[in-house]
Amino acid sequence: MTLTLLKVLIGIVCVLIISLWALMLIARALRYRDDRRHVEIRSLLGELLGSIATADVSNRQAQVQELRSLTSGVKGRRYLIDQLRLVQDYFSLPHLSSELLDRLGIDSALVASLHQKGNMHRARAVVNLYETDSLIPEDMLDKYIAHDHIYLRRESQIALIKQRGWAALPHLSASTRRMTMWQQIRIIEKLTTYFPVAQKDLLLEAWNQGDESLRMLCARLADSFDLLPEMHGMLLEGAFSDDKRLSDLCVTLLRNLDGNLQPESMPISIYSAHPNYINISKRLAL
């Protein structure tokens, strides 16, 4: 009995090992096929983007059609979008890429993905839409910015900023989850790139929502847009926050103000009852 069991177990393990070898072979073959397809996609994309001027995609129907057939699957579509994002890193071609995406049917496929069941699919669609400068229905973004799924929530918040700019900032407090530093950096990048004129009132409105991570974002935005000298009252409030990360950030930013701010202009005495008053005053060197 035991011997038979041992033999069966040995057989199972052998089958598993052989299956792994087979899987390695299959994966290799699939990768080879994908690589070839990628070369074709890149070549067609290079040809299209290199030879045509803005909005001239219509003259290249045959190539567009070929590219469309190569990118009809999820993998192909994903690869094309990755390549377009790479190109956008070098060259600004918003109209051309959105027209190309439209003609390739990728825009509509991505918008359709927003309605899919899987949150991961939706999140990916959100990223791809905002990274290719396509519009996302605002009602969807409003729904997703407080979603439980971390990626969907995070990417929708970035997309909202990309579409609505500063006006979307106060709405980010809809989520009760903490905003990560990565997300804050991405939001700052979108605002500085697409909405370079700071809107102080909206920044203050967002600050007044009271959410710590949103306040961290506001403090960093104030720094990025050179608003610190006029908004030091806000930072001082942050320095006395119970949230250690917010407090540390505000103290650092206030310290960076150095010569731009005189101790007498800092209304620190209003926090004299705070338990950390002495410690924070010392750190602020006031």
Binding site: G46, E47, G50, S51, Q83
Partner: peptide, 12 residues
Amino acid sequence: SDRLIASILRRR
């Protein structure tokens, strides 16, 4: 550069 970028530049 990346081959795609290089090919776009060359054509352009």
